[in-house]
């Protein structure tokens, strides 16, 4: 895997005017993505993830700032960028009255592929995304999961070296979601495709991305591996139970942490190593739990809010 930079953004900013009020959707985004990386953009709805993605994919001109994507400037040479990237948006990419295979052929033509090449590639994608039996079906009649797989196929027709996915698993059941990610990971393993994905699903970012960018209120507030984010920003929580409050207080005096009633909790790094030692040292322990942090704890540590509550309550995304 080569390590040259495939996305560079400097000071990328987008403001919208909504009913005479200026809304800063994205503020001063600086970003470098290396070829072959799998990067997840994590944040609540309305954090500015999609707007950032839409600027990087030339769908939306930035208010200020610059970005180079696959060697082409998004403002000066949008066509150069478009030729080299794949984009799978939040909606359904295929036309509702089109047939599955027809859309793939049209998409191939849009990307300058010859008829034979487009047909071969379309059949290959239909096969690998389990869409072959649906080739002559109308898009209108497909299930949500089938439509999403077709979106992926359309995004991949020209074998792009960089693939953007905007909330790819929204609206999918857990099984389709796992299946979708399997395809994304296969793609990366087989072709070294650089993958840039936005998501508000913590588990996805946690499981699949090696690098997580956290975005909130239009600003990028963290950029690291999921593991590092969790160690530096959240830490493991060990909770020990005791027979009495006195035992808990005595244990707190020896081991640190905060005693509450007959239990004691400690926030530590590498809880899995600390817990056995504590159990050896403190003979009065009656129960023990270790909770390793999730990216939600990271988000909580960064913003003071839980991403879960946020995702549930705030549905406002600026449409542009």
């Amino acid at each position: 895997m080569t390590t040259d930079t495939i996305i560079t953004a400097r000071g990328l900013t987008k403001t919208f005017t909504v009913r005479k009020a200026v809304v800063e959707a994205v503020t001063d985004l600086d970003l470098d993505v290396q070829r072959g990386e799998l990067v997840a953009f994590l944040g609540p709805n309305g954090a500015g993830k999609s707007t950032s993605l839409r600027m990087l994919t030339t769908l939306l001109p930035p208010t200020s700032g610059t970005a180079t994507v696959v060697g082409h400037d998004i403002a000066r040479d949008p066509a150069g960028v478009r030729r080299r990237i794949g984009y799978i948006g939040q909606g359904t990419s295929a036309g509702h009255n089109q047939r599955v295979r027809d859309e793939l052929l049209s998409q191939g033509a849009f990307y300058g592929m010859g008829r034979r090449a487009a047909a071969t590639r379309a059949d290959e994608l239909l096969e690998s995304l389990d869409l072959a039996p649906l080739a002559t079906r109308k898009v209108l009649g497909l299930s949500g999961g089938q439509k999403r797989r077709l979106d992926i196929a359309l995004g991949l027709i020209h074998s792009p070296e960089l693939l953007f996915l905007d909330e790819p698993s929204t609206g999918l059941d857990p099984q389709s979601r796992a299946n979708l990610w399997q395809h994304i990971l296969d793609l990366r393993r087989e072709h070294g495709t650089t993958i840039f994905v936005t998501t508000h699903f913590l588990e996805e970012a946690d499981l699949f991305a090696e690098r997580v960018l956290v975005m909130d209120h239009g600003r990028m507030i963290a950029d690291d591996t999921a593991g590092n984010l969790k160690t530096t920003l959240a830490g493991d929580v060990i909770t020990l139970g005791f027979a009495s409050e006195a035992d808990a207080r005595a244990a707190a005096a020896r081991a640190g942490g905060t005693a509450a009633g007959s239990s004691l909790s400690l926030t530590v790094d590498h809880g899995e190593l600390v817990l056995p030692r504590l159990l050896r040292e403190l003979d009065s322990v009656t129960s023990a739990t270790l909770r390793q942090p999730t990216l939600d704890d990271v988000f909580l540590a960064l913003t003071g809010r839980s991403l879960r509550e946020d995702a549930a309550t705030s549905k406002e995304e600026i449409n542009a």
């Binding site: 994919t57 030339t58 769908l59 066509a79 478009r82 030729r83 990237i85 984009y87 948006g89 939040q90 909606g91 359904t92 990419s93 295929a94 036309g95 509702h96 009255n97 998409q107 849009f110 990307y111 300058g112 359309l154």
Partner: peptide
């Protein structure tokens, strides 16, 4: 209305990202 529908579903957006 066909275009309107394609703008709402996302297939128009797909053609905007394509090099046409």
């Amino acid at each position: 209305s066909n275009l309107l529908y394609e703008m709402q579903t996302g297939s128009h957006e797909r053609t905007l990202v394509a090099p046409i």
